[in-house]
Write a protein that binds this DNA or RNA. Structure first.
Lengths: 208, 208
DNA sequence: ATACAGTGAACGATCGTTCGTTCAAGTATA
DNA sequence: TATACTTGAACGAACGATCGTTCACTGTAT
């Protein structure tokens, strides 16, 4: 799906791919600094060291630049999927994941880009699809962990592990957003998040 | 703070206030439909049945229109603060609040406006302040309920009730956003949210 | 008569996109 | 290997539309 055709390893196409990446990087920087709608195509082109017209040789429209960026977000999730794939006891995996994902979102740029994409997704179905698709990668992996934990008796029996997975993600992401807006560092919030999640999913008789 | 000076009850000022309200209403509609940055000042003026120039007699800039709207959000919270002020057992109050707040956010317009304001708050400190100020109304009330519940033994002892309050709000708001983006109605999500929160804050020995 | 709500043309800037052109790399022909 | 031909990346001026804001003006209630 993301594998773009064949890639003839010519000197030309190599440079071409490099340009493309440069443009995308520049776009991300611009969107982070000024927001998607406040960023002009010229801003992106200038920052990428590329002419305005050339940018349109690489991307059919500004919208498509954002679509590509939203799609790229998928790659960022790999480390977390890896954690969730571990076979250690579910509570341990869960806690490792929560910590790692929260630390990832402690970087403002990751939160800002998320908000920027989310707010564009409201009115652009193709962006919403990508957003939900990426999110599904996390939820389905997390759901597996929760189900396994419940089966092993390591976690509270959950009426709908998939719903619970969603809620856990929302907790982390919401906390990250609040951390950024309020200026309270994620490090100060993380403990509370972990406790809250533990309390919610660990079996009732677990020592606190 | 929001109480604007004195209000001489003349026929003129009456009509004036009405115009202002009309403009704000129109702005809200526009922001909901097209987003803040995709909305032109002309769109607002036209929709409000007001001339472009006149809009600037009422508001010094487009930005200030959003500021006023963000401030107005405060009033929407009154019903929920009222619920949280009740003296019934904390778990009962909490559940009533969660349900009511979730139902409120089941209406897409409430979620969209929230996202729109949040994403503008990233780069506009005065909007961020208003946002956090409004949110503090909810968190502090909710914190009281949680503290009381913990003191009465109705709720699990919480190391930081204020943090927990934040997390509960984030759960509800995050769920609402997901509901809107994914198309899954809030009604299908609410049960899971209530269960999750209950598990997280009720004493460990409580029957499920 | 005075103050000011109300008006819409006009301003300069910027928007996303298109255009004709240039020129270097890739391919075919010799 | 040297040559002509083809392709499309790269460029920046230009397009029409729209942006937020200002301003000189009109109408009207006090």
């Amino acid at each position: 799906m993301s594998g773009q055709e064949d890639a003839p390893e010519s000197k030309r196409n190599k440079a071409l791919a490099k340009r493309r990446r440069k443009i995308l990087e520049a776009a991300v920087m611009c969107f982070l600094e000024n927001g998607y709608h406040q960023t002009g195509v010229r801003d992106i082109a200038t920052r990428a060291g590329v002419s305005l017209g050339n940018l349109y040789n690489h991307f059919p429209s500004k919208h498509d630049v954002l679509v590509e960026i939203a799609g790229l977000e998928r790659d960022e999730l790999a480390p977390f999927l890896k954690i969730l794939a571990k076979t250690s006891p579910a509570p341990k995996v869960l806690d490792k994941f929560v910590t790692a994902y929260a630390k990832h979102l402690a970087a403002p740029e990751n939160v800002i880009l998320s908000i920027e994409i989310t707010s564009e997704a409201i009115r652009k179905p193709d962006i919403a699809d990508l957003f939900l698709e990426n999110r599904d990668l996390l939820t389905s992996s997390l759901t597996s962990v929760l189900s396994r934990g419940a089966a092993d008796g390591d976690l509270r029996p959950l009426s709908d592990p998939s719903d619970t997975a969603q809620l856990i993600l929302e907790l982390i992401e919401g906390s990250a957003a609040r951390s950024m807006l309020s200026g309270v560092p994620m490090r100060k919030i993380l403990g509370g998040v972990r406790d809250f999640i533990s309390a919610a999913v660990l079996p009732p008789d677990t020592a606190v």
